[in-house]
């Protein structure tokens, strides 16, 4: 029984999908939609159908008992549902939904879709649902000619790149009897980046870096301890290693380097663990390196992103990490 039911649902949904693809898609493939006569769909909602059924029952009862009062009740219900369709349509008409941007996220956070809503006449009780998912749903009681910015958490938690699915803009105004709806199909992708997994930075700085003979290019700095040098008078006292002085009576100076100047190579194959784990580690490294302004190169089994630095580079790397499909090399 459940299997049968499930099959029926899927048949219905696939039928709906076919309809959508055949007839509607081109109309809604935009980044902004203003609801008008050719983009609004109006039908009684499920409550509306119940209402119609009760109206029919009342009608049958009124006819059978030849009762004028029950008949008037029934006619009243029919008239109300037609009026509700008119009201629902003119309520939704003129609503403009514009796609602003979509903010990617790090797993397990969800990406955020930013839309702006505006209507030249007051539009009541509008709900926006992403891909028929009740969790990705927001509701607005009134929308006026002041633009409202709406953010929607997209239902993606796992790493990956996702094509944006269709967004349903619906209203059940008035009394929930009719549902007036339209779609917005935004043609863009969003990413859920891998989760951060902490990993020691210098262990993964590759020796294959052709620009540095000893594996790494160093520059005097303050962050990472490098080695001890013999103290020279102009060096000052603040970097003397007093531990050594206590042991050996020899003045030694601690030398630090900065990775800022280090060119790094982050290689998928040098990471440890399962694929997702490795991607998470790489993700951490990419973020760290960008934070410290270290130029780096990202090497994945299929892709190589050349050495660079900055936000655009970071985003490119994160996106390729997100959309990484598996190592087909081995």
């Amino acid at each position: 029984m459940p299997a049968k039911k499930a099959k029926r649902v899927s048949l219905f949904t696939s039928f709906k999908r076919i309809i959508f693809e055949k007839f509607l898609k081109n109309k809604h493939l935009k980044n902004s939609i203003t609801l008008e006569h050719n983009t609004i769909y109006v039908l009684p909602s499920s409550l509306g159908w119940y209402f119609v059924i009760v109206a029919i029952l009342n009608f049958v009862m009124g006819i059978n008992y030849q009762n004028n009062l029950i008949l008037v009740m029934s006619y009243l219900m029919f008239v109300v549902i037609v009026l509700a369709v008119c009201m629902g349509y003119s309520n939704a008409k003129g609503l403009t939904v514009t796609f602003d941007k979509v903010l990617p996220s790090f797993s397990p956070q969800k990406p955020i879709l930013k839309l702006s809503l505006q209507s030249n006449s007051i539009c009541q009780s509008v709900s926006i649902t992403y891909n028929n998912d009740l969790k990705a749903h927001t509701h607005y009681d009134t929308i006026s000619n002041k633009s409202i910015s709406s953010s929607l958490l997209l239902p993606y938690e796992n790493r990956g790149s996702y094509e944006l699915q269709r967004i349903k803009i619906a209203s059940n105004y008035p009394f929930g009897l009719v549902s007036v709806w339209s779609y917005l199909q935004i043609q863009t992708k969003t990413y859920v980046y891998p989760a951060h997994e902490y990993v020691l930075s210098d262990a993964h700085i590759s020796s294959q870096d052709e620009y540095a003979q000893n594996g790494m290019a160093k520059k005097p700095g303050t962050e990472e301890f490098e080695n001890l040098l013999i103290h020279q008078p102009e060096m000052g006292l603040n970097r003397i290693s007093w531990k050594h002085y206590a042991k050996t009576k020899q003045l030694l100076v601690k030398d630090f380097v900065d990775f800022k100047t280090t060119n790094a190579l982050f290689d998928f194959n040098l990471m440890t663990g399962a694929t997702e784990q490795r991607l998470s580690q790489l993700c951490y490294l990419v973020c760290e390196a960008t934070e410290h302004n270290t130029p780096f190169m990202l090497k994945l089994p299929n892709t190589l992103i050349n050495i660079n630095t900055g936000q655009a580079h970071k985003q490119q790397c994160l996106e390729s990490l997100s959309s990484f499909a598996g190592d087909n090399n081995d």
Binding site: N64, N68, L71, Y75, F78, V80, M87
Partner: peptide, 29 residues
């Protein structure tokens, strides 16, 4: 709001009652 809507719908419902041909009972209840 609801009384507004119903008041609007009422004249039409009465009109339907007056003019829609009355049917005999479908079955005896």
């Amino acid at each position: 709001q609801s009384s507004k809507l119903l008041l609007m719908a009422l004249p039409l419902a009465i009109f339907l009652l007056l003019f829609l041909p009355k049917m005999p009972a479908f079955w005896q209840l």
